[in-house]
């Protein structure tokens, strides 16, 4: 054959032609099957139904009807909000912010320490050190996996109703969040500068603080900002179990079916979260842009 540059007939016994499709193993088939079964099974268990959604429209209308038309801030009727109420809600909103901020700050500090102690090989590789690392890792896992409302209930029990319980809850939640992601960030940075320091007589601690932490700093900052956003969102509902902040008023108003006032609070919460997220997003972008510029 000479009709082409490449003679495909010459080696007709060619048997190393790649397969068109990957063969899917039996286990794969079963995994796919199991996924489908799980979707159906979960929908059943979750009582998800479109009828239910449609049926709810009458309640929804009633809720909207009571939530909106009667709002007359500073108006005359019994439902309307007075300046006094506005100040109170504002104060509670500020308290929510303070809880979130303090809790996040403490959580970042302790989370950072735990992240250092749990990162593999960061502060040492000896047997006792590895034991510490595993223990701390388990502790962080515990902080992270127990939901914040459960922590809130526990802390209300321990220190009583109010903002302190909420602050502790946010702190524990943030320790779990930052402990995990700080550790990942520090494990991910290029270790060669740290090794270089160790090879000229610096300790593990030196190498960590002089080389690893500075290199991980942008990641640590963005994670901290995420943690704060998360805390602001989380802090709102802590009031539902009495752990301080504006959630307590919100809960009370819902119990009294004072939906119009509740709407005002929801609006304020929305504004707070919106502002915090915008500011945080701006800062995060600044941090990453700053990094890109240098590279």
């Amino acid at each position: 054959m000479t009709d082409g540059l490449i003679d495909i007939d010459k080696k007709s016994e060619l048997n190393n032609l790649p397969r068109r499709y990957k063969k899917i193993s039996i286990t794969r088939y079963f995994i796919y099957l199991a996924l489908i079964v799980m979707v159906i099974w979960s929908f059943q268990g979750s009582q998800f139904s479109f009828e239910g959604l449609l049926d709810s429209t009458q309640y929804f209308k009633r809720f909207l009807g009571e939530a909106f038309p009667s709002i007359g801030i500073l108006g005359e009727n019994e439902h309307s909000i007075t300046w006094k109420d506005t100040f109170r809600y504002t104060r509670e909103l500020i308290e929510t912010f303070q809880m979130a901020f303090t809790g996040t700050l403490l959580g970042i500090i302790f989370g950072f320490i735990l992240a250092l102690l749990s990162s593999k090989g960061l502060l040492g590789n000896s047997r006792p050190m590895r034991l510490v690392q595993e223990t701390v890792k388990a502790l962080i896992l515990l902080f992270r996996t127990v939901p914040d409302l459960v922590w809130a209930i526990i802390f209300v029990m321990l220190v009583g109703l109010g903002a302190f319980a909420g602050t502790l809850t946010i702190m524990v939640d943030t320790i779990g969040f930052c402990g995990r992601f700080f550790a990942e960030e520090m494990e991910d940075v290029d270790k060669s500068p740290a090794d270089a320091l160790e090879s000229c007589g610096a300790t593990k601690l030196d190498a960590t603080f002089a080389a690893v932490v500075p290199a991980a700093m942008p990641g640590l900052i963005t994670t901290s900002l995420f943690a704060f956003e998360k805390a602001i969102r989380g802090s709102v509902i802590l009031g539902l179990v009495g752990a301080g902040g504006i959630g307590m008023s919100l809960n009370a108003l819902f119990n009294w079916m004072a939906y119009d006032r509740a709407m005002v609070i929801i609006g304020m919460i929305f504004a707070l979260i919106f502002v915090v997220e915008q500011v945080s997003q701006y800062l995060r972008r600044k941090v990453t842009q700053n990094e890109e510029k240098r590279i």
């Binding site: 270089a196 000229c200 007589g201 500075p214 290199a215």
Partner: peptide, 20 residues
């Protein structure tokens, strides 16, 4: 560590801490 601190090491990749 004392021994290492008296030996300078230079690598192919300079291994400086980038952000400092």
């Amino acid at each position: 560590r004392r021994m290492r601190s008296s030996i300078g090491v230079v690598f192919q990749k300079h291994n400086l801490v980038p952000r400092l």
